[in-house]
């Protein structure tokens, strides 16, 4: 199944239990601030305009970071997580540039740094059939784990049943081609620092449109250049052999 997370911002009390649980399971330093994502905080709770906003990797259906990585260190798993292999990474940071949500972070203070981001507890929970640490810790059910399609239905149901309580938008359903982390909110997402106007087409498509032309460019270009060289040289050769008679 494809797993996902639904975070209902109207139900979040800002206790940061999710952020703490994340730090515990991933052995991240608790001293790093928990109100913004960093190499040492993969799950954060930001307090903005009176709203508590849980931040984490969106685990896109077709992630820009995965397509950007030159060594395939990032991977989208069957279970839905976008995971990272530090052993492959060469540290080019193109994933950070490419991610439309600005999620991957870097260990700038280390001499041998790696990319750091939420991996949906892939190894420690998801692959063992358990739910991620963050959702299991949430005391209000503001952030819940489940099957992607079921969570989308649940989100739509909440909007339909309480139209006054939510802006009619499931953030993450269409953004960047669809993600695995959805948000519901009473306040427009643009006011909460969520990137607005994101493309609804997956981002990797943009570069693939160009890259997929390479075989054509190589074959056409190669033939063209060889042809030009052959024609020009043959003409010069013929001219040299049979100088135009006077």
């Amino acid at each position: 199944m494809k797993s996902a997370i639904l975070t209902d911002l109207t139900k979040c009390i800002g206790c940061e239990a999710c952020a703490l649980a994340c730090k515990e399971i991933n052995e991240l330093p608790v001293s790093a601030p928990m109100n913004m994502l960093s190499a040492y905080t993969w799950s954060a709770v930001e307090h903005r305009n009176g709203v508590n906003i849980r931040r984490q990797c969106m685990h896109c259906e077709e992630p820009a970071c995965v397509s950007a990585c030159p060594v395939a260190a990032l991977e989208k798993t069957k279970e839905g997580a976008v995971i990272y292999d530090a052993g492959k990474c060469m540290g080019c940071r193109y994933c950070m540039v490419a991610c439309p949500f600005g999620v991957p972070k870097y260990e700038w203070d280390k001499s041998i740094p790696t990319i750091q981001k939420c991996i949906l507890c892939h190894e420690k929970a998801l692959s063992q059939g358990k739910e991620p640490a963050c959702t299991s810790a949430c005391p209000t059910g503001a952030t819940i784990f489940g099957e992607r399609a079921a969570l989308l239905r649940e989100a739509q149901k909440r909007i339909d049943e309480n139209p006054g309580s939510y802006v009619p938008h499931i953030y993450g359903m269409r953004e960047a081609g669809g993600t695995s982390v959805f948000y519901l909110s009473a306040v427009p997402f643009a006011d909460l620092g969520f990137p607005g106007n994101l493309k609804e087409d997956p981002y990797p498509k943009l570069t693939w449109k160009v890259l997929s032309k390479i075989p054509n460019i190589v074959s056409t270009g190669g033939v063209l250049l060889l042809g030009i060289w052959w024609i020009i040289n043959r003409r010069i050769k013929l001219q040299d052999e049979n100088p135009p008679s006077v």
Binding site: V71, C89, M90, Y94, L211
Partner: peptide
């Protein structure tokens, strides 16, 4: 200088991701 792990600069030779622009540039 720019790569975080410069000693892995050869990785694109064996770890392929043809969907990556950076892979092609490399």
């Amino acid at each position: 200088f720019d790569l975080g792990k410069p000693y892995n600069v050869w990785h694109p030779l064996v770890m392929w991701n043809p969907h990556s622009v950076m892979f092609e540039v490399g």
